[in-house]
Design a protein around this nucleic acid. Structure first.
Lengths: 130, 130
DNA sequence: TCGTAGTATTCGGCAAGGCGGATAAGTCAA
DNA sequence: TTGACTTATCCGCCTTGCCGAATACTACGA
């Protein structure tokens, strides 16, 4: 599913509205998790196997499997069978564009970008953070 | 504040690593909420007051206030006083670029983009969706 | 000064979603 | 077919973060 390229889309602003926002937000959500983003960046650099991904991010294999499936469903990466392994790669060059652009913006605002520091001033005890 | 260009920021994929990912993920998180994304798109089209934003998204004023503060902290929008109102606008052209790019990608993958439909097959009762 | 409009913060509640561990399901070599 | 290996699903647990309502704070006008 999801033919990798085939795309022809070109950036065209305007014509927003609609529940298009919901879909796009969903799209962003996939990248809003540090682990998934790390995985995407890792795969962006080169084709990777699941095992490599597991080692790279350091969480359990089942979790990585879910994350990779998520990235694949969203069209960020493509899975390819190689023997009994799966190799993941990024098929759409716009993905790199998107990440690069976001990284640039984030870097510029990194200063104030504790983002939503106002939201979780709750909680108590528990010093384990993560 | 926040000079649009200013800092380096040149597209260079790979060679990322670092906890840069965390910051960037944080950045994406701001756009991963449909309400916030809707607000950003709304403001992207024209400068808006808080009241307009509240009406546009249809949730409580306190919530909108938090969302707008979040967007401002992340550098997506800029707040400007006008009388006793606040007017929000987008100061960095790259924000529009980012949204446009994401929208294009999301549209292309919208088909399979139920994104993480595999994650919440739990729960029961309660048919209130979201 | 006081009153009002506009904005921000606090609070309790609740769903979404990330995590590890156990385990099922699929894939290939002998 | 069996066994080894790789990947995906299920499970309970727990944190994150969104929500409305109440309310405090701030800026401006009279």
């Amino acid at each position: 599913m999801t033919h990798p390229n085939a795309t022809a889309t070109r950036p065209e602003v305007a014509a927003v509205s609609c529940t298009h926002s919901d879909t796009t937000a969903r799209f962003f959500r996939a990248l809003s998790d540090p682990t998934r983003l790390r995985l995407l960046e890792f795969i962006l650099a080169a084709e990777r196997t699941s095992a490599e991904c597991v080692e790279h991010v350091g969480i359990s294999q089942p979790r990585v499997s879910v994350h990779l499936s998520c990235l694949a469903d969203c069209g960020y990466v493509i899975a390819r069978r190689d023997g009994r392994k799966l190799r993941y790669s990024v098929g759409d060059p716009r993905v790199a564009e998107l990440v690069t652009l976001a990284r640039a913006l984030a870097a510029d605002n990194a200063a104030a970008l504790d983002c939503c520091p106002r939201i979780p001033p709750k909680s108590s005890a528990n010093g384990d953070a993560r």
